[in-house]
Nucleic acid binder design. Structure first.
Length: 224
DNA sequence: GCGACAG
DNA sequence: ATCTTGTCGC
């Protein structure tokens, strides 16, 4: 790693579903969900993965200046998919290309915004938690569809939200980033509180439903 | 048991 | 994720 140097924890790549689930259980206690995290961040990285011929993945990272939304740095990593898509084990498919892309950055982001879930996950350890624990950086998960738990439809105004309940506990929020548009699903990943996580997501979504860092990463991951 | 299931 | 046209709305 260059700017996102020395991983806090070495990644392990399980070869079976059972081993992958065990790895999530092993890392879950390492996710810090009590740290309220940064109230404001200068550099925020959006991460996403694009797919090609079903066997190729493209990890993309775009770092934005949170104040101006200006692109400060970006990187991609193209490789063969090393794990199949299994709901709940999403991270093992997308982590390799994302870590490789992060390795190419020349700046160190203060917050990672991931396309997927954090603790709103069957084993409470989604992609955002995994990425946060491995890098040691604050991380938040932003998903476009509901995955686990229950939630009410939040009021139609931008900024309104409702709780995502999982086993009677708050696992995240359905947050409306634009008037009258479907909400996004925000959950903690690592070293950031739900309140601050939602504040960042809302602030970084001035024009579209999906936060700008993730939109940029999504666009980059589709480029030829 | 069956279907649904982040991307 | 990806395969895909037109269509409604601001």
């Amino acid at each position: 790693m260059t700017a996102v140097t020395s991983l806090a924890h070495e990644p392990r790549w399980p070869a079976s579903v059972a081993a992958a689930e065990a790895e999530q259980d092993r890392l879950r206690p390492l996710a810090d969900l009590d740290d309220p995290g940064p109230v404001s961040a200068g550099l925020v990285a959006g991460l996403d993965v694009g797919y090609r011929d079903d066997e190729e993945v493209v990890g993309a990272v775009v770092v934005l200046d949170a104040a101006t939304l200006e692109v400060v740095d970006q990187a991609t990593a193209r490789q063969r998919a090393s794990f199949p898509y299994v709901p709940g084990l999403f991270a093992f498919r997308e982590l390799p290309p994302l870590l490789a892309a992060l390795d190419e950055l020349t700046v160190r982001p203060e917050l990672l915004m991931c396309d997927g879930y954090g603790v709103a996950h069957p084993r409470r350890f989604g992609l955002a938690c995994h990425l946060g624990v491995l890098t040691g950086l604050p991380a938040v998960g932003v998903a476009k569809t509901a995955f686990v738990g229950t939630h009410e439809d939040p009021p139609p105004e931008r900024g309104s939200w409702s709780e995502i309940l999982l086993d009677g506990e708050v696992a995240g929020r359905a947050l409306r980033t634009r008037d009258g548009v479907k909400p996004v699903f925000v959950s903690q990943g690592h070293r950031i509180g739900l309140e601050n996580a939602c504040a960042h997501v809302l602030r970084l979504s001035p024009a579209y439903r999906v936060p700008e860092p993730i939109r940029q990463a999504d666009r980059l991951s589709r480029l030829p």
